[in-house]
Each structure stands twice: as C-alpha cells, then as structure tokens.
Amino acid sequence: MGAGSKEKAVHKDKIEQRSVIQRFKEYCQGKDFHNDKKGLIASGKKLIIDIFRFLIIVGISYVILSPVIGIVVNSFFSDADAYNPMVYMIPQDPTTSRYDLVLERLNYWATCSKTLLYSASLMVIQVVICSMVGYGFARFNFPGKNILFACVVVMIVIPAHTIMLPLYTTFKNFDPFGIITLIKGAPINLMGSGAPMYIMTALGCGLRSGLYIYIFNQFFRGLPKEIEEAAFVDGAGVWYTYFRIMLVNAIPSVITVAVFSMVWQYNDTFYANLFLISSDVIIGMKISTLQATIANLDKILDPTIQELYLDAGIVLVMLPVVIIYVILQRHFIEGVERSGIVG
C-alpha cells in the first residue's frame, strides 16, 4: 500500500466524520466538492435509520423497565397517593413506612442472607460439577459418549415437573441402597431441609444443570487442544490440568454459569416448594405470603394498600439480584456471547 492511498483513506475518514447537517450546509453553499447528491442521500438515510433504531430501542426498553419503575415508585406511595388519580409516577407525599413494616415482616436481613448463602453454596457446587462433566464430555472419548450426551439434552428438554413426584417420594423416604435403614432402622425424611437440593446439585441434576453442562461442554470444545497437550508433556495429571489450567481458561463461561445459577436459584420457588424448604430460608417463598401476613397481622385489609406493601417487598427481594447483575453485567453478557451457548 502506497503513501498516496493512505492519505486518501484518511481524507475519506474525515469526510465521513462530518455530520449530515454540516454536509447539507456545505452542499447549499456550494462548498462541498467531495460529495455529490448521492453521498448526502446516503448519510441522510443513515440518520433516519439511526433515529428509527433509537426510537425502537427506547420504546422496548420502556416496556421492559416500566413495571420495574412502577413497582419502585408505588412502594413509596402514601395511602392518599394510591387513590389520587392525578398522581402518576411521582408520589406527592412519599413515604418509607412501607419498607419499615416489610423489613420487619420479612425478617429481611436474616432471611435474605440465608437465601444468599443457600444459593451461593449451590452455585459453587454447580460450577464445579457442571464444568467437570462438561469437560469430561468435551475432551475424552469413551464408549457411549454420544448416547450419554443425548441424555444431557434430554435433561434440558424434560421439564422438572415431570419427575417431581418420584423426587418427592425419594427424598421423603431417603434411603440410598438401604444404608440408612441399616444404621437407623428407618429411612430418614429430608423434606423441609436444603439437603435434597444439595444432593441433587452435587450429582449434577440441580436446577437447570443440563443447560450448564451444555454451556461448559460447548466452551471446552472451542478451546485449543494445545494447552492441554503442553500441560501433559510438562507432567501435569488430568485433574491438575482440569483444575489449574482448563477452569482458569474457562472464566467467561464460569461467570455466565455462576450468575445464571446464583440468580435462578435465588428466584427458584419450584424446588423450594417441592422439598418444603422453610420460607425462613427462601425469601422468594416468604414474599408469596407477605400479603396475607400483612392482612392478618397488621389488619391492613384494603387490597390496594396491601399491593403497595407487596411492591416494597418485591423491591427488597429484587435488590440483591439487581446488585449482582449490575456488578457482573459487563462480564456476564460478554461471557454469554463467548461462552459457547452458540457453539
């Protein structure tokens, strides 16, 4: 490439940097000798497309955000505001009394920290187990691999509710291979504790584990084999290679799976309901009875006002998830893109 063409390129860049309005002015004044009508039309088209895109994005963002904004705003409404048809979006007489009561009724700090601990510990197990299984499927050849991987896909496709009854009976009378009957004389009842969830997650069958295994599998398949070969030649064992080399390289998908599993576990009420986990541990279940609690304990019988309390509760429940999301948002979305959901 010669120097002349480079100059030309720079010149072209300069032209393209000018705005449409500027160009139009220059065109009217007869100054614009680089561009004819065609260029003007093209850049005008671009402007229209930009405006169009802007409008659509703003509109759809509004559709997504409006209920969230609505909930947040409503939680600050006073009783009078709720019935005043003139009040829209901005409370006339903002109050935080809803939060005071809801914090107490939800026992917020204790419940929330328990829920976070529960979902964080499950998240760690999910990441370790699912990445291990994903790695096993991605890098090793063994008989029956394709059939077994098809089973992973089956796990994704089969809804959890199909197997909920057998799961319930399994954990209600928990007795693996008759060991517990041998020791204690009777199978133990694991209902009401977090144990069933931990056991299932540790065996790679937790909440949406199939999806995580799939994500890790796709990601590991995309990594170059040379890294492992180098590790192998240097004398690293398979497990060392996996924990110290592959898992470190898989950070994008680790973040993706970590956020997904943390957030979904935090929000999950299906398994919590199924295993009868106490609502003192799961804030998502506690919120579902909040309205009744407020009606019965505090004698607030007006459903519209009850809604305002519920909104305050929802804001409090959403808060940790939103904070996690905002902190990790950038890594997370990049992670989803690179983590091989696409393959």
Binding site: F140, N141, F142, T162, I163, M200, L203, G204
Partner: peptide, 28 residues
C-alpha cells in the same frame, strides 16, 4: 487411561442422572 478419566469426570452426573432422572421417569 483417557477413557477411564472420561468416565471419572462424568461420574457424578451419571449417577445423578440414573438415580434422579431415569428412575424418576420410570416411576412417573
């Protein structure tokens, strides 16, 4: 050895799948 390691890596899931999914499906 690699075959064996492969099975070792997927072992937790395999046990879980058989115990929780396969068995549960049949029971359902």
């Amino acid at each position: 050895r690699r075959t064996m390691n492969g099975y070792l890596f997927i072992l937790p899931w395999l046990v879980g799948f058989i115990v929780f999914y396969l068995r549960s499906l049949i029971l359902t």
